[in-house]
Amino acid sequence: MLALAHIKEDKPHIQITKYLKVSRTSVNKWVSVFLEEGLAGLQEKPRSGRPAFLTPKQREQLY
């Protein structure tokens, strides 16, 4: 959302990438997703892959 705020202020993508320390591809992707799906599209989505090794309770104990 911070990248979108900078875009709204007409800052160049290259400046945004340096400020946020992300690739230009990421900024472009976020903008595209926002234009297609709105803010809901920027929410964290479930990821595929190996299930977590620790249980939620064990994770809490680490933090």
Score class of each variant (00 low, 15 high):
residue 4 L to P: 03
residue 21 K to P: 01
residue 53 F to I: 14
residue 3 A to Y: 03
residue 35 L to I: 03
residue 20 L to C: 05
residue 58 Q to F: 04
residue 16 I to Y: 01
residue 4 L to T: 09
residue 28 N to H: 08
residue 59 R to L: 14
residue 33 V to D: 06
residue 27 V to C: 06
residue 3 A to C: 13
residue 5 A to Y: 10
residue 17 T to L: 03
residue 13 H to F: 14
residue 51 P to L: 11
residue 30 W to C: 07
residue 33 V to N: 01
residue 14 I to Y: 08
residue 63 Y to N: 11
residue 28 N to F: 02
residue 28 N to T: 05
residue 9 E to Q: 15
residue 19 Y to K: 10
residue 58 Q to R: 13
residue 18 K to I: 05
residue 23 S to L: 02
residue 25 T to G: 06
residue 42 L to N: 04
residue 14 I to F: 09
residue 13 H to S: 15
residue 27 V to Y: 00
residue 52 A to D: 08
residue 53 F to L: 14
residue 18 K to L: 13
residue 22 V to D: 04
residue 48 S to M: 03
residue 43 Q to A: 10
residue 10 D to E: 15
residue 17 T to W: 00
residue 63 Y to K: 14
residue 33 V to I: 10
residue 13 H to K: 14
residue 33 V to E: 01
residue 11 K to L: 14
residue 17 T to I: 04
residue 37 E to K: 11
residue 32 S to A: 11
residue 26 S to F: 03
residue 25 T to K: 06
residue 5 A to N: 13
residue 48 S to N: 10
residue 28 N to G: 09
residue 50 R to C: 04
residue 59 R to H: 09
residue 57 K to Y: 10
residue 60 E to V: 06
residue 44 E to Q: 05
residue 31 V to W: 02
residue 44 E to K: 08
residue 48 S to C: 07
residue 39 L to A: 13
residue 56 P to T: 08
residue 20 L to D: 00
residue 35 L to P: 00
residue 26 S to Y: 02
residue 8 K to Q: 15
residue 18 K to S: 13
residue 48 S to I: 02
residue 23 S to C: 03
residue 2 L to W: 11
residue 32 S to V: 01
residue 8 K to M: 14
residue 58 Q to P: 00
residue 53 F to W: 10
residue 24 R to M: 04
residue 3 A to V: 08
residue 1 M to Q: 12
residue 51 P to T: 10
residue 61 Q to D: 11
residue 56 P to D: 11
residue 55 T to G: 05
residue 43 Q to K: 04
residue 61 Q to W: 05
residue 7 I to N: 02
residue 14 I to K: 13
residue 29 K to E: 04
residue 38 G to M: 06
residue 29 K to R: 14
residue 44 E to S: 07
